[in-house]
Design a protein around this nucleic acid. Sequence first.
RNA 1: GACCCGUUCGUCUAUCGGUUAGGACUCCAGGUUUUCAUCCUGGCAAGAAGGGUUCGACUCCCUUACGGGUCGCCA
Length: 452
Amino acid sequence: MHSGRTGDGRLFSKHMTVRTRFAPSPTGYLHIGGARTALFNWLYARKHGGVFVLRIEDTDAARNTEEARKAIFDGMEWLGLDWDEGPMKGGDFGPYQQSERGQIYDAWFEKLVQTDRVYQLDGAWRFRFERKPITMIDGVCGEVTIDYRDESNTPDMVIKRSDGSYVFHFVNVVDDLEMEITHVIRGEDHLMNTPKHLQLIEALGCVAPQYCHIPLILNGDGSKMSKRDEGAALGDYPRHGFVAAAVANFIALLGWNPKNENEIFTLDELAENFSLAGINRAPARFDYDKCRWFNQQHMAKLSLADFHHAALPFIAAASLPTEEFSEAMASAVKEKVRLLEEVPHAVEFLLDDGFSIDHEAMEKLAASAIARDGLIAIAERFASVDEWTLDTAKISISDAATMVACKPGQLMFPLRVSLSGRSHGPDLNDLLMLLGKSRCVQRVQRMIENLA
RNA sequence: GACCCGUUCGUCUAUCGGUUAGGACUCCAGGUUUUCAUCCUGGCAAGAAGGGUUCGACUCCCUUACGGGUCGCCA
């Protein structure tokens, strides 16, 4: 039969179409680690002009939920990981949900019955392992051997439950065979399953796909990432105002690197540069700060219109008037925020005259010898401007500085705090133009009163 | 506990026997900006430990320690 060996996978041929798959089970939510597995499979398929399959592994009827199914589709769509075959897409190897593939499994199972590779125990069917060392050639880990002569460590596994349903190991293997999957990129938690799968494939008389096990993603402190941990649920990313390209970029670099010093990649660029050889073997820790930095880098590349559009839902969610949130405002904060969820706070004082004034900034102002006089001069100069333009506003500030015998630069901080209530924010020129003459005068006067 | 995989700055990583061990995030200091931020420049910071092999080891081998994974009629 075949190569006489198991575990070394298919000899990769230039003529062979690469077929990868992502096979999540619809229980819970889409985990960031799962998203990365999907991404790597997608990248590998795209890189090699292959086919990316989405298969829903819903064999555990009790734990499946519709929300979880939706989370998978939504997450994939958000990240931009389109599948060539799968639910809502069809394909020649369907159906793509295991719950609908019963007859297919029955047929393959019958082969094992015929060849006496299964036996019944307590009503469940167990697969009889061959008692020999099993060696796999993993695409990432290299050669790994598990000795199946040690029966205590590798008991025969159940592949068909006493209720007649099939277990993961069996359906997963059958589907990869049926769907002609060439490369299986999956989490390292499956590494010890692989010899089981190899044995099954051999018993079925087939050739195994190339397996590649990628390291898991850990929390920042090195602990196992689970449900409630920051960054664990893919669905949280759009909610916090991450853009998809940034998240894909960041998780791609968690466990993979392009072997050069580039860091910012679009999805297409990732696909161009992707290779199995660049995948690491050690688990990576999740760094939320760096993820935010990637987001900032990707947002900076967004067009103003796209950024404005992306920020609008966050303005609405903060109960700020979306119709007043202009592209000019978006422009003023575009490169100052790392997450879209920071936009409302960054612009709220532009949309609402009743903004509060930062304590620390106020104290610094109160301590300044020239702040009050400077602001009085500015208010006076502003008020006398006929045509409010950036030039006339700037001239007014210079004039005010002359009046109180200081440098214009010294008036910037008092003016900034007067206009925005804070010591950090958009460019002063933007503030001046965005607010207009009368609001600027009002705000400066309000500050003068506060300082009295 | 058994069996697997792993271990370079705090974090993500480059290095495929010979390098002042490089880059990025974070942090700090300068510079640019009449202001804030961006940005630019510079700085802090690493080969888990012990044995080998070798002229020479972060790199290869062994041991220990530590981390992760797996040991289900879950996937």
